[in-house]
């Protein structure tokens, strides 16, 4: 594999990780899901708002 290919692969990996980690990828998953099932997706604003409000009830503990 060329050095450029390795860098590109690593970059894609990092991007994938960060999107998954921050939950940004959930929107893409949702669009994919809607496309697969023929649903009309809600706007991103609406989607993210519902997602954030659902998190409201989950206590995310942080340790010392």
């Amino acid at each position: 594999m060329t050095a450029g290919g390795t860098v590109a692969r690593a970059w894609r990996g990092v991007r994938w990780y960060l999107k998954e980690f921050t939950g940004e990828a959930r929107w893409d998953d949702y669009l994919q899901h809607c496309a697969a099932h023929g649903h009309q997706p809600v706007s991103r604003r609406e989607f993210e708002r519902r997602r954030a409000d659902a998190l409201e009830r989950i206590p995310a503990s942080r340790c010392c």
């Binding site: 960060l18 939950g23 991103r44």
Partner: peptide, 14 residues
């Protein structure tokens, strides 16, 4: 930013 300006763009905001 994440709620009103550009919803969901966590990486950008961070």
């Amino acid at each position: 930013y994440l709620r009103r300006l550009r919803p969901g763009r966590v990486l950008e905001a961070t």
